[in-house]
């Protein structure tokens, strides 16, 4: 049977995932504990932003991870489309909802930071605009998977969407930066602000790592579910075929 051969690799993945998963969770929790302790208890309030600076510890890692997850998705899509590797297709599909959640959080916390700093909930700031476009890319990718029934066809079309989107991301970043610098209002608080102090940078980096490991933990489980879901689909298709 060719399907056993096709899933030979996913089977090895399942075994690896089962051994690695508890360790990934432990590292994730430890990183979150350290990052939150340093960020909330140790780091001082900013002399300009006050306590509002603490929003950064959940905002910046979310934005970093959203970009990282999209990169993972695009690389997995390229591997899937070039080598026809089923595990790569599954990995790309499983990453998308997690990345979209990070992207949404980057926008939501950015907006919560912007209200006290800028005075409004939403500003068409260069970074927020780029993040918003990234969220649209995620939603388009997820919508493609929802719209196409056959998983093999869906994976090819979705891979094209992911790769074209990945080419688009730096172009959007470049054009939005250019656009914003031309239209920049005079009285706006600068986003990048003063240079980052190490007492802020260390928790920021640890939180970034914590988000990456959280992604890894959730991604591994999602991949496992997706492999299982495809097995279910195949078995059910084979049964209905056998009944006829």
């Amino acid at each position: 049977m060719s399907s056993i051969e096709r899933f030979a690799n996913p089977t090895r993945f399942m075994r690896l995932q089962a051994t690695v998963q508890p360790w990934v969770w432990m590292i994730t929790l430890a990183l979150f504990a350290v990052g939150l302790f340093l960020g909330l208890a140790r780091a001082p309030a900013d002399y300009q932003q006050g306590e509002t600076v603490r929003i950064m510890y959940v905002h910046v890692p979310a934005a970093w991870s959203a970009l990282m997850v999209y990169t993972v998705m695009a690389v997995a899509s390229i591997i899937g489309i070039v080598f026809r590797h089923p595990l790569a297709d599954i990995a790309a599909k499983a990453a998308a909802p997690i990345g979209a959640a990070f992207c949404f959080l980057a926008l939501a916390t950015g907006s919560l930071w912007g209200k006290p700093m800028w005075g409004t909930w939403w500003v068409w700031d260069a970074r927020l605009t780029s993040m918003f476009v990234l969220l649209l890319l995620y939603l388009g990718y997820i919508a493609i998977w929802q719209a196409i029934d056959d998983p093999r066809r869906a994976s090819r079309i979705a891979a094209i969407v992911a790769i074209v989107g990945f080419i688009n991301v730096p172009i959007v970043k470049f054009s939005v930066d250019w656009w914003y610098s031309l239209h920049q209002p005079a009285s706006v608080f600068r986003t990048d602000g003063p240079t980052i102090h190490p007492s802020i940078l260390t928790p920021l980096l640890i939180m970034g790592l914590a988000y990456s490991f959280l992604f890894l933990a959730l991604h591994l489980i999602s991949i496992r579910s997706e492999i299982g879901a495809r097995r279910i689909r195949q078995t059910e298709l084979a049964r209905t075929g056998a009944l006829q």
Binding site: V133, L136, G140
Partner: peptide, 12 residues
């Protein structure tokens, strides 16, 4: 779906 997919590409 076309609008959702093409909108990010139209931004630049």
């Amino acid at each position: 779906l076309v609008s959702l997919l093409v909108l990010p590409l139209y931004v630049p």
